[in-house]
Design a protein around this nucleic acid. Structure first.
Lengths: 385, 385
DNA sequence: GTTTGTTAGTAAAGCTTACGAACAAACAGC
DNA sequence: GCTGTTTGTTCGTAAGCTTTACTAACAAAC
């Protein structure tokens, strides 16, 4: 049932140490070039066929051929002649048919609600639905998700390209949620169930990974790590422009890594001093409430930021990241906390590693997982992002 | 429509979130398939064309075509008919021409000598040369390397496929050593200089990365980290079967990450409590010499192992690795030290992450970088490993 | 108004690549 | 000897990209 292609690494041997594992046919090459044309349009905006040829390296002939195919499928539209005055035959502008498709996105990362949205291919949220979770678990959550999706579909003003769902927990590449304690899920084949119920293409991923994809779309960095801070603490890792899944789909699980060698508060997991005990929103709020005065409050934030830096330092060293992004409540994380993290990273790693490292809050706010879920659909259906 | 189509992946855009960036032509696909055939033979040993077709998924026709090309190039040889009695036309066995090519490998990771070897395509060291470094730096080291290579070439009993060099420091993808303090190198284009001098294909990489490639070749793991312990401490990271280079070619630089929150010995880099101050061979030996009695010596080793575990815990969490390999003096690292690292990792990360994690010493011993340098050549020249 | 030069897009032909169909060779088993 | 099986090759075909050559359409210069 699992398609071979889902696991096959059909990439070319560009990355040196990559063992070739599956055959590659000319039609795969064409699919890649097709995605390349789409990607160029999606990211760069309207252009002529000749522009696309110059940018992709393909010939004008090939681009014309691919464009004709994409126009026939309704993914690309002709906009008419370019206005500006240049010598030569005026160019026919074409663009990604941005209003021809919508994406349904679902965010399950919030503790108490299911968030859904109709999103366009540029990541703009057009319609929104939020249903309370009310402590539901197991199948009830799946039903709730389907309920949200039915309502979203009614709100969509164009055909739906696909459904993207960001779920907490361990999610594999084909959309099976192996474990999501908060939702009472174990081995739930969410991809299949939603696909069967809706008849649409469905892509399910871990919520932190979805957030990371949203971030990746807006940055030039190819090596970044996104830390998500909420009730729990998670992370998504991109290396060489590629999301890291890990050997058991559990990459990014840094919330229960012990920080430092000086103890810490007891954690729900049984250990002491896990990152979550320093950084999770409930813990941070509790500490802030207990703190007396502005100075004490800032000390709480700085200490949390320091702990984050302590955990990230070995990761930055091992991976030579170029960007660290933090997602979560900006009023808690954006100020002294992030500053302390930056200081700590500088103090605990080689200067060469932090010199070109950017550390910042996300600009996506609360929509980050929704937008990431949309990226999952774009990527899965069209090979673009 | 069906979940099947919903799960289909778009050919080359592997790993979902990979932006297509370059065109792909049919000839690239052929190069990939060619490497696939070679890889299958190299790893699986002699086989018939029909065997290869079954294993690769290509047709017998295509395999025959590729094999003919490879035979013409001398990379593959026919061995004659298969002996075993089966119905049907007897198969003609073919195999990688293992004795038709040699690789020259150079290891610059040792502090006091240049190690060189003639290596066969299976990674066996056939001839060895070691020249003392005698404190040489800069151009003198380059000359020494060229000297070693001339001698090695005289010892090679078959045409040389290429030269692989594992160097300490920051080495980029095209073989420029941006910084290797021990050798007095800054921005040394080692690849070009050796290629010009020898007229052979040359591949230069970081020594820890080379070691990691050697390890990768012998394991089924696609997500592993190799820690190299010598005068310094370094690491190489493989994720999804692919070496991680980092945004500035500095991935794996964990030697100067500060460990823990309880101070430590001063380090040459100016900080205190870097991993190297706990784990490097000179520091370890000094501490062991100062320790009084077997119990104290074991405490030293256990503490060093614990510090390694503290640094690796966040990395294991972030990446969900399946294998950790340690390279270095086995008498120091192999016993109590490694045991303490394992204990520490278990105590400081989620149980799910360590359950399937293997932690072990390398089996390559001192030849690990030489073998890895050979893998670099195999990979770079033939697309195999 | 004409000429010149440039750019956009298309058409035709050719090369490369992989595939399917068909076949001969070579063998085991009866 | 006959049948069935397996191997490896030959032949023709489809897909995909390129090169070459063309038409259309424009700006600039005269």
């Amino acid at each position: 049932m699992t398609p071979d292609t889902a696991r096959s690494d059909a990439g070319f041997t560009v990355g040196r140490a990559l063992r070739p594992t599956a055959k590659v046919l000319p039609e795969h090459a064409r699919a890649h070039n097709r995605a390349l044309v789409l990607q160029t349009l999606l990211a760069g905006g309207a252009a002529s066929r000749a522009d696309l040829a110059r940018e992709t390296g393909l010939t004008r002939v090939t681009v014309s051929d691919l464009v004709a195919e994409l126009i026939a499928e309704g993914l690309i539209v002709e906009l008419g002649h370019r206005e500006d005055a240049r010598p030569g035959k005026p160019a026919t502008l074409i663009d990604f048919a941005r209003d021809a498709h919508r994406i349904l996105a679902v965010d399950l990362s919030e503790h108490s609600l299911v968030r859904g949205a109709v999103v366009d291919v540029d990541g703009n949220v057009l319609e929104r639905i939020e249903l309370p979770l009310d402590g539901a678990t197991g199948d009830a959550v799946v039903e709730l998700v389907l309920d949200v999706l039915v309502r979203l579909q009614a709100l969509a003003d164009a055909p739906v390209l696909g459904i993207g769902i960001g779920s907490p927990g361990v999610v594999d590449r084909v959309g099976v949620v192996h474990s999501a304690p908060n939702l009472g899920w174990r081995e739930v084949d969410l991809q299949r169930r939603v696909a069967v119920a809706t008849g649409l293409p469905v892509h399910v991923g871990n919520d932190a990974n979805a957030a990371t994809l949203a971030e990746l779309r807006g940055t030039a960095s190819d090596d970044l790590l996104v830390v998500t801070v909420g009730r729990g603490v998670g992370a998504g890792v991109v290396l060489g422009g590629r999301l890291v899944f890990g050997s058991a789909w559990a990459a990014g699980e840094i919330g229960h890594v012990v920080v430092g060698t000086d103890g810490g508060a007891p954690c729900a997991c049984g250990k002491e001093g896990c990152l979550e005990t320093w950084l999770s929103v409930p813990r941070l709020e509790a500490r802030l409430a207990a703190a007396d005065g502005e100075e004490a409050r800032e000390a709480v934030l700085r200490e949390a930021g320091r702990r984050l830096g302590i955990v990230l330092a070995p990761v930055v060293g091992a991976l030579n990241l170029s960007e660290l992004v933090v997602s979560g409540p900006e009023e808690l994380l954006g100020g002294a906390l992030l500053g302390a993290t930056a200081d700590t990273l500088r103090n605990r790693t080689m200067a060469e590693l932090t010199r070109d490292l950017r550390l910042r809050m996300t600009a996506h706010g609360k929509d980050i997982v929704l937008r990431g879920a949309a990226v999952m659909v774009l990527s899965g259906q069209l090979g673009v992002s």
